[in-house]
């Protein structure tokens, strides 16, 4: 049974219908990427899961528990990180974590160890005594992640965790999320940075104007759209014979020779990058470079959405 289940969720703000009957599921331990333009309904959906908004209709469950009926039980199971890190300018990083450890009713005897662990995990041990408002934006985001981990929740709800961060901080956050994924956490993450989600997420959902456009694994979405994956390769003994054999390989859509490389477009459902590498070898080619491009999520996103808002 899926850890998160949403069926026909509808949420409105007054007369504005922000979410219009969306449904999706997240199995336990998966990282679900929530993609959509501004105003699509991502944050609203996350807020419903975080027990901050009451849905107009639909069923929302986490770990089999009905969210609107048992918000208190849900709060112990989730860690929610909003898209903006509000600062308690009067607290240090350590005090901030102690504050939330007490709010999550972690026994006092365990707090010091738990806080030490999350600070180490987020690489903030040296900043423990620093005032929160003196930390950089990247550090604040890591501190927010440390906060959501305090009570060891099963589900992390992360609303735009990498927005506004510089490249280094973004990579740090991404690595941290990978570590959390390794720890078996179920993660729902919304983001605009599509290629980063592609590297991190096991499943994605694309939402537009309050409606789910598509949901599934990346491969399923690319297959359904008939998208091609590009592999760049350098072949030392490139010849017409090798090129014609490549073009005849099942699953290869086209082969294009460029000044320094050969770009092969293949249908992801029919041929994997590993199989292609074996095939090129079997054609007698000597390979200097073999570089599959990350799946082109931007193309998928543009193809599936029209830029509408709720």
């Amino acid at each position: 049974m899926s850890f998160v289940q949403i069926e026909g969720l509808t949420v409105s703000y007054g007369k504005v219908l922000a979410v219009r009957g969306i449904s999706f599921e997240i199995p336990k331990g998966e990282v679900f990427g929530f993609i959509g333009p501004n105003g699509a309904g991502k944050s609203t959906t996350i807020k419903v899961l975080a027990t901050l908004l009451n849905p107009d209709s639909g069923r929302v469950r986490i770990d089999g528990i009905d969210v609107p009926k048992h918000p208190m039980a849900i709060r112990r199971r989730i860690g929610y990180m909003p898209d903006f890190f509000g600062v308690y300018e009067d607290l240090s990083a350590s005090e901030y974590l102690h504050f939330y450890a007490a709010a999550f009713q972690i026994p006092r005897s365990q707090r010091e160890n738990t806080i030490g662990d999350v600070l180490a995990l987020t690489d903030l041990t040296e900043k423990a005594k620093e005032p929160v408002d003196s930390l950089s934006r990247g550090m604040k985001q890591r501190l927010a992640l440390a906060r959501v981990l305090l009570h060891d929740p099963d589900l992390l709800l992360l609303d735009e965790p990498a927005s506004g961060l510089d490249p280094r901080a973004r990579i740090e956050v991404r690595e941290l999320l990978k570590a959390l994924q390794g720890m078996g956490k179920t993660i729902l993450i919304s983001s605009h940075i599509l290629h980063e989600l592609a590297q991190l997420c096991t499943r994605i959902g694309i939402i537009e104007a309050g409606q789910m456009v598509t949901a599934g694994s990346l491969e399923e979405i690319y297959d359904s759209l008939g998208l091609l994956q590009v592999v760049h390769t350098q072949i030392l003994n490139l010849s017409d014979d090798i090129l014609s054999k490549l073009r005849a390989t099942p699953g290869v859509a086209s082969v294009e020779t460029q000044v320094d490389r050969v770009s092969i477009q293949m249908r992801a459902g029919e041929l994997t990058a590993e199989d292609l590498l074996d095939k090129i070898h079997s054609h007698g080619a000597r390979i200097r470079m073999f570089q599959p491009e990350a799946m082109d999520m931007e193309t998928a996103f543009m193809k599936l959405t029209e830029g509408k808002t709720a």
């Binding site: 049974m1 027990t51 901050l52 908004l53 009451n54 469950r61 089999g64 528990i65 009905d66 969210v67 609107p68 009926k69 048992h70 918000p71 208190m72 039980a73 112990r76 199971r77 999550f104 009713q105 972690i106 365990q110 160890n113 738990t114 662990d117 009570h151 060891d152």
Partner: peptide
């Protein structure tokens, strides 16, 4: 969200039996 006063005491749904080691009472570090 406020706790639904009419909801059952057990937060698990009817389809799924209550879990004996439910961690609602004491979160683990």
């Amino acid at each position: 969200l406020a706790e639904d006063p009419e909801a059952s005491i057990n937060p698990r749904t009817d389809e799924e039996p209550a879990n004996a080691d439910d961690r609602i009472a004491a979160p683990e570090p």
